[in-house]
Amino acid sequence: MPESAAPTVIAKPPQLVFEGLWAFAPNRDTLGGTAYFLKLPHGNWLIDAPAWHAETRAFLEEQGGLNGLFLTHRGAFGKAIAIQQHFNCDLVVQEQEAYLLPGARVTTFEREQAIAPQLTAIWTCGHTPGSACLYWEGQGGVLFTGRHLLPTREGGVAPLRTAKTFHWPRQLRNTQLICDRFSPETLNWICPGASSGLMRGRKAIASAYERLRQLDWSGLSEAQPLL
């Protein structure tokens, strides 16, 4: 190979989480965000934007294309518009983030809305004004949380306050609302949209409802922003 030639980069393929659900490798375009692909009888969905290259296109086309792309927050947009243009799919985002997708054909929601059979979008403002989670009724209940809830070093899940957090008290209130909305029977798994390295090879956080109930609310309320 000539010295000037760049080595071939082989993209890491999506990894199976459950039957019909795959997790993509962290995406540099979304600051290491994790996107998911969900294959359902009524249509295929992406949750957040994976790295957009030939391998991603081939994988999605082999699975039958794409019906929709749900975006959990503005930091997970990546190449969402290019993905929509390629597959002519729906692009769903909470209404306060939609202006950041100029020229795209966007479907918005306000608070909570069913966007497809077994899929419900839930507004969880805090990390950004339009942060949202997506709930899938399969596998005993799976919540795709974007950066609203992230894995912890202790193996749990929690909201994370950073210097760029839009509104920390609202994020805490919306975390409590998630706890109130679900139960051990309806929320078994959380699929976070970042910090996958803390999951130590796991692709989803089990016993999700119990882990949320174990949160140290007083400690979270006193947390200071990261600088």
Rank of each mutant, 00 (worst) to 15 (best):
P2S: 12
P7F: 08
L16A: 15
F18D: 11
E19H: 12
L21I: 15
L21T: 11
W22F: 13
A23L: 13
P26G: 04
L38A: 07
L40G: 07
L40E: 14
N44A: 09
L46P: 10
A51G: 15
W52F: 14
W52R: 04
F59R: 06
E61G: 10
E62I: 07
G64L: 02
G65V: 07
G68Q: 05
F70N: 04
T72F: 00
G75P: 01
G78I: 09
K79P: 12
A82M: 09
I83T: 02
Q84M: 02
N88S: 12
L101P: 08
G103S: 08
T108D: 03
T108W: 07
E110H: 11
E110K: 13
E112V: 02
A114M: 11
A116W: 08
A121K: 05
W123N: 05
W123I: 00
T128E: 11
P129E: 02
L134Y: 00
W136I: 03
W136A: 06
E137V: 08
Q139S: 10
G141K: 06
G141W: 05
V142K: 03
L143S: 06
P151L: 04
E154M: 08
G155R: 10
L160G: 00
L160D: 02
L160E: 11
K164P: 01
T175A: 03
I178F: 02
D180K: 12
F182K: 04
P184R: 05
I190P: 03
C191P: 07
A194M: 07
R200S: 11
R202M: 11
A204M: 06
A206I: 07
Y209P: 09
Y209L: 08
L215K: 03
S221I: 12
S221H: 14
Q224C: 08
P225V: 05
P225K: 07
P225L: 05
L227H: 14
